[in-house]
Design a protein around this nucleic acid. Structure first.
Lengths: 138, 138
DNA sequence: AATCGGTTGTTATGTTGTATCATCTTGCCA
DNA sequence: TGGCAAGATGATACAACATAACAACCGATT
């Protein structure tokens, strides 16, 4: 969190109280959390919270690389490599609901080769693998 | 489409008129199409169509591997390798809206290695790359 | 004829995300 | 020191995406 504050200062963007609360809410869950769950949690300490309040904060945090959106769950997850440029992949366990962020160079290399072959300019990568994690498999 | 019919016969599942119409609607667009766009199109020839009608058909077609869902767009796309077991990745152009399905062995190999390392049992893969396609880049 | 599984009809509702315009705060500077 | 501009938030309404629940139908089997 100190790191998040430092990053925002460095970039001259504002990590306002609302944004910081939302970040804390997303961050403290190791499972992806839905926008309306964030809203419920935020509303406990911030009565005026409404959907746009939350979506604005989530958009800001995504733009700054502090959280990710898991598209296949419509949910949000704290980023493990906050602020550093990186691409990430997610392993999502359908049993326990956790999402693990992994960084895999081989993956990126294969992707780079495939997109270059297609002359495709990459802007955003969504890689979400669902299944059963090691712990839940026993 | 003949191929879709053959597959369903072989599997002893019913490609009913509604399902076939929905498949045709998804298939004839080379862009991913939203469920409510499908609904509008279906309703032209099938007045009774309602959201559940469409979602049931889409679920069936996905289960049979005839279409895919693009999670990052909440939209559906005809499958290029209908019925054959395969994993696919998508290149989605934000300019023209087309989504190209690519099959890349290197990708699958990298994924296999990464998931085995994590002792993760894969059930579903979502790989959606957004950006600018070759045609739109000029 | 009874019934059983699969499909569709129907109504309502739940979930996720945005548009729009008003208001407030802060810093700047003429 | 008054006014303006940019960024952030408040507030209302609505759009877009998806499912729950139960009724009705239909063909195949017994």
């Amino acid at each position: 969190m100190a790191r998040a504050r430092a990053l925002c200062t460095e970039r001259a963007v504002q990590l306002t109280p609302i944004r910081e609360k939302v970040l804390a809410i997303v961050w403290r869950s190791h499972k992806p959390v839905g926008a309306y769950d964030v809203l419920d949690a935020l509303a406990r300490t911030h009565k005026a919270a409404r959907p746009p309040t939350v979506y604005r904060a989530l958009d800001f945090l995504m733009a700054e690389g502090l959280i990710h959106k898991i598209e296949s769950l419509n949910a949000y997850l704290g980023c493990g490599e906050a602020g550093r440029p990186h691409t990430s992949q997610f392993l999502i366990c359908r049993e326990c609901g956790t999402a693990q962020e992994i960084v895999d160079g081989g993956f990126d290399k294969a992707l780079e080769a495939a997109t270059r072959r297609a002359r495709f300019t990459v802007e955003r990568k969504v890689v979400e693998i669902s299944g059963i994690c090691a712990r839940c498999a026993h």
